[in-house]
Structures are given as C-alpha cells and as structure tokens.
Simulated scan of single mutants.
Amino acid sequence: MPPDLEREYVEYVTARLPRLHRMAYLLCADAFQADDIVQATLTALYVNWKRAAGADNLDGYVHRIMVRRYLDERRRGWSKVLLGDRVPELSAPADHGVEERDALLTALRSLPKGQRAVVVLRYFGDLSVEATSEALGCSVGNVKSQCSRGLATLRQALDARHPITTSQGAGDHS
C-alpha cells in the first residue's frame, strides 16, 4: 500500500478504534470475541482500503464489515469450544451500574441477531436510520421495524426486572 494511503488508514483506525470495539462488544457481549471481530474488520478494511477510502460513507462501509464479521462468528461452531478445563475468573470493575449494565447486556443477548445489530448500530453507534440501512444492506423500513421490535423487547425485559410499584393503594388518598 502506498505510504499516503497507509497513513490515511492509520488515522482513520486510530480515531475510530474505541468506538468500533464498543460496538463489537455490544453486538457479542464478550470482550475477547469483540477483539476478534474488530481485528477481522480492520484486516478486511486494510486489504480493501483503496476502494473503501473512496466510499461515500466510510463509517457505514466499516459498520457493514463489522456486522458481517459478527454474523460469521455466530455461524462458526468452533467459536463456542472452550479450550481449557475451566472458565477463568474475571474480576468486575468497582462500578455502581454493574447490575444495570448486566441487565441491558442480557436483554441485548436475548434479541434476534438482526434486531440486536439494528439496536446497537442505531443507539450505541449513533447511526441514523439511513446509515444503519446502508451498513446492514437492508431497507429503511426494515431498520425501522427491526428497531421497533427490538426496543419493545428490551423494554419488556428490563421492565420485568424492575416492576413499577406504588406506595399507596388505588383507593387510599391519605
């Protein structure tokens, strides 16, 4: 790759790497798998950088690669194989929002992969409906319906964890 194109690639990746990793993590809910997805995405981007750099919407192009890599990982049976005799213990950071984050990630994991991809790109990736449509290679209407269904399922799952209770009965007005 010519030095000027390589410099552009490095600048693009440097600026977007944290966001790409966050999006990959939200898609798969596993930090190690997110690393693999980001690496596969950036490798594919590097190989096709000359063509990709000329795209009208480079971020959409990259998001489409990422979602495809995520879906490819989900299709591979070997990715579920545990290579050790026990699961390593992971320490959780001291964070007060751990329960909420875990509830959200659990709810996200319960979504079908199409709805999850739409919700992650729209609300965690801050993409417009049109950009999400372009990234996923589907219609705007499909993005809207998948998003609506996904959000309804998320609300239902999260509301089930925290039902609204009232301190007074319906007839008690004291």
Rank of each mutant, 00 (worst) to 15 (best):
Y46V: 00
G114T: 04
Q33K: 14
P163Q: 04
A40Y: 02
Y12N: 07
G84C: 04
M23E: 08
E11W: 01
K50Y: 01
A160G: 10
A157N: 10
R22T: 14
M1L: 06
T14G: 12
V38F: 04
E73K: 15
P2C: 02
H63W: 01
A92P: 02
G150A: 07
C147L: 15
V129D: 12
L111P: 11
R101M: 12
F32D: 12
L83K: 09
A34W: 08
R149G: 07
L121H: 04
V129I: 15
R64M: 04
A24I: 02
K144F: 01
H162L: 14
L111H: 11
H63G: 08
R101E: 03
G54H: 00
L27W: 04
E73C: 10
P93Y: 15
T14M: 08
V13C: 07
R86P: 03
Q115A: 12
G97H: 12
V47F: 04
E99I: 11
P88H: 11
Y61E: 06
E73A: 15
L5C: 00
M1I: 07
K50V: 00
T165F: 11
L136T: 06
S110C: 07
S145R: 10
R122I: 10
P18C: 06
L17R: 08
R149S: 12
G141K: 04
A29Y: 14
L108Q: 13
R109Q: 15
E130R: 05
E8H: 03
D95Y: 14
R76E: 13
L104F: 15
D56F: 08
P112C: 10
A157S: 14
A94G: 06
A52L: 01
P112G: 09
A24S: 12
T41Y: 00
R122T: 13
R161K: 15
R116T: 09
A29N: 15
G125V: 10
E8N: 07
T106L: 12
Y46Q: 04
A24H: 03
L105R: 15
A55T: 01
E100H: 14
E130S: 11
V38S: 10
I37W: 02
W49H: 02
H21C: 04
A52N: 02
S145A: 08
L158N: 11
P2M: 03
I37S: 02
R51K: 01
V62I: 03
I37K: 01
R69Y: 02
G60I: 08
Y70L: 08
K113Q: 04
R69K: 13
D30I: 08
S133D: 08
V120Q: 14
Y12D: 06
A34I: 05
D56M: 03
I37A: 09
D59Y: 01
